[in-house]
């Protein structure tokens, strides 16, 4: 690891003041991704500001839903009684990610900020526009089995790795962010971004901004929601494809469907076409299949990941059927 200056801070204002003085400084939460990237010399901050002591650890009910402290641990969030009861898709998604040890360390804010596991991003001998802007994308013509089928550009075909964020996307969460000037609320759909011309940026957070909480509004599909994750081994692996789905039902009629996909794009991929197809339709196997077709028709596979189209359809159908049955 490259040497760095270290300080631990005790309140958000102190953290923000410090990071504003140095554009090469980084906040340290649980450390599970950042320290790994530093060992690989992918991340090279010259200053680390440890925010682990900040009191942003509360998980509490609010008038509009629930607020997840940015520094509450993933384990605690997944097992919280209110999350299990009212947001089970979030609990299930968190528990589908990483291992028990990592979930004990990883924070909610840090989970959103984890970086792609694209092997070319991690290999500093290879070109990568995300790590080294302008150097090219080695994955575009390389081994891209794990990579994107939606929203990619020739500059970057990486996928976003979080499971938790896929559920938060379907739940219409927002991210509460503090800077020296203001507090702002970023809707989840605007938080993570597609690679566009700047794949070095994963999200709309600016230097000097600190995530303080994730706000999740109430929903009416807690009993009809599901998280389906397909991966190379049964546990402790990133998604090839994942789907978070919630169905607001009136009898057997779908009023609205909320669906987000993981493992397919540079950000949580909200399945808007599938959602639009299902609106006011009967919850039938045929309609689930048509909704899945509608979404996956837009996919643009790379050389090694065409399988994700069929896998995506099956995962969508499986998630919708599971949500409809209500056996999360």
């Amino acid at each position: 690891m490259k040497p760095f200056k270290f300080s631990a801070v005790n309140n958000p204002a102190e953290a923000i003041t410090l990071i504003n003085k140095n554009t090469d400084a980084a906040f340290l939460g649980g450390g599970t991704n950042l320290l790994d990237l530093m060992k690989e010399h992918v991340a090279l901050p010259n200053e680390i500001i440890d925010i682990g002591n900040l009191s942003l650890k509360e998980i509490k009910a609010t008038a509009s839903g629930i607020s997840l402290g940015a520094l509450a641990k993933n384990t605690e969030t997944a097992n919280h009684p209110l999350i299990r009861k009212n947001f089970p898709v979030l609990s299930k998604a968190i528990l589908a990610g990483a291992s028990a040890q990592i979930r004990n360390m990883a924070t909610n804010g840090g989970n959103l900020l984890q970086r792609t596991r694209c092997s070319y991003f991690y290999d500093i001998a290879m070109p990568c526009n995300k790590r080294n802007p302008g150097s090219g994308c080695a994955a575009l013509e390389g081994f891209n089995r794990m990579h994107a089928i939606f929203g990619w550009t020739r500059d970057c075909v990486a996928v976003y790795p979080s499971d938790m964020a896929i559920a938060l996307s379907a739940l219409n969460a927002s991210v509460k962010v503090l800077s020296s000037e203001r507090e702002r609320i970023i809707p989840f759909r605007d938080f993570h971004i597609l690679p566009g011309a700047h794949p070095e940026k994963d999200n709309s957070l600016q230097h000097g901004e600190l995530i303080t909480a994730i706000e999740v509004p109430k929903n009416d599909f807690a009993e009809h929601s599901a998280y389906v994750k397909i991966r190379d081994r049964n546990s402790y692996a990133f998604a090839l494809v994942s789907v978070a789905a919630g169905l607001t039902l009136n009898g057997n009629t779908i009023q609205t469907a909320s669906i987000a996909m993981g493992g397919v794009a540079h950000k949580p991929w909200r399945a808007l076409n599938a959602e639009a197809y299902l609106k006011d339709k009967a919850a039938t196997a045929a309609n689930f299949a048509k909704a899945a077709e509608a979404e996956m028709a837009l996919a643009q596979p790379l050389a090694h990941n065409k399988f994700k189209i069929e896998m995506g359809k099956k995962a969508l159908i499986n998630a919708l059927e599971t949500a409809f049955k209500g056996n999360i």
Binding site: F6, A8, L28, G31, T32, L35, D36, I48, D50, G52, T75, A100, Q101, I102, N104, M105
Partner: peptide, 13 residues
């Protein structure tokens, strides 16, 4: 009281 990975933790944390 929690199991964690000591390799992804800085001693100073």
């Amino acid at each position: 009281d929690k199991r964690i990975l000591s390799c992804l933790t800085l001693a100073v944390m």
